[in-house]
Amino acid sequence: MKTNIGISNQNTGAVADILARLLADEYVLYTKTQKAHWNLEGMDFHTQHLYLETQYNQVHDFVDAVAERMRKIGHYAPGTLKEFLELTHLTEHYQGKNDTKGYFRELLEDHESIIVFIREHINPVSEKYKDEGTADFLTGLMEDHEKIAWMLRATVA
């Protein structure tokens, strides 16, 4: 059934394209956070292992929320690894050591990259595409990423 929410199909299509790229970034970040959780080594292993588990669960919720937002505006979410890798602007490769500092710096860069991406799209989503709901959703998601970035930044300082 066609979505009739007061936003043109052209505008929801443009917003869905933004959300698809964000979804891909979130999924890559989720995978990288889980990898860090699995492979972390060092004296702080236990504490940071538990912290990373909390973090990847939170990012998993972000993935689900972005995909559901796409469905709410009447579009399908990408869902294959191939699609995600074609859409993401993050890299899935990690070259550092299996320690807190290396993993946390990498994850911090990714969170900050997502924050910048979201920030660049909030106003166009609201003003150009007339989708206040998605703009509000993006603002909340950006704030969640800002909190995680702050905690990672404080850990590697």
Rank of each mutant, 00 (worst) to 15 (best):
H46C: 03
T47K: 11
Q48F: 11
H49N: 09
H49T: 08
L50W: 03
Y51L: 14
E53I: 03
E53H: 00
E53G: 12
T54R: 02
Y56T: 05
Y56D: 02
Y56Q: 00
N57R: 04
N57P: 08
N57V: 02
Q58T: 04
Q58D: 02
Q58P: 00
V59Y: 00
V59L: 02
H60K: 08
D61V: 12
D61C: 09
D64W: 13
D64K: 06
A65W: 01
V66G: 08
A67G: 06
A67L: 11
E68Q: 01
E68I: 11
R69W: 12
M70F: 05
K72F: 08
K72E: 12
K72R: 04
K72Q: 13
K72P: 04
I73H: 03
I73T: 00
G74K: 03
H75Q: 13
Y76A: 15
Y76E: 15
A77P: 10
A77C: 05
A77W: 14
A77R: 13
P78Q: 03
P78W: 00
G79Y: 00
E83D: 15
E83V: 07
E83H: 05
E83I: 11
L85P: 09
L85H: 15
L85G: 12
L85S: 09
E86A: 14
E86R: 07
E86G: 14
L87P: 11
L87W: 11
T88P: 10
T88K: 06
H89R: 12
H89F: 06
L90R: 04
L90I: 06
T91W: 00
Y94C: 05
Y94E: 08
Q95M: 05
G96K: 04
G96E: 05
G96D: 06
K97M: 03
K97C: 03
K97D: 08
N98E: 14
N98P: 15
D99L: 01
T100V: 13
K101H: 13
K101M: 06
G102N: 10
Y103E: 02
F104Y: 13
F104D: 03
R105P: 09
E106I: 06
L107S: 04
L108I: 06
E109A: 14
E109K: 09
E109T: 07
D110L: 02
D110Y: 01
H111R: 10
H111Q: 00
H111L: 01
H111M: 04
E112C: 09
E112W: 08
E112I: 04
S113A: 14
I114M: 09
V116S: 02
V116K: 13
F117E: 12
F117N: 15
F117C: 11
I118K: 00
I118Y: 10
R119E: 11
R119D: 08
R119Y: 07
E120C: 13
N123S: 11
P124N: 14
P124T: 15
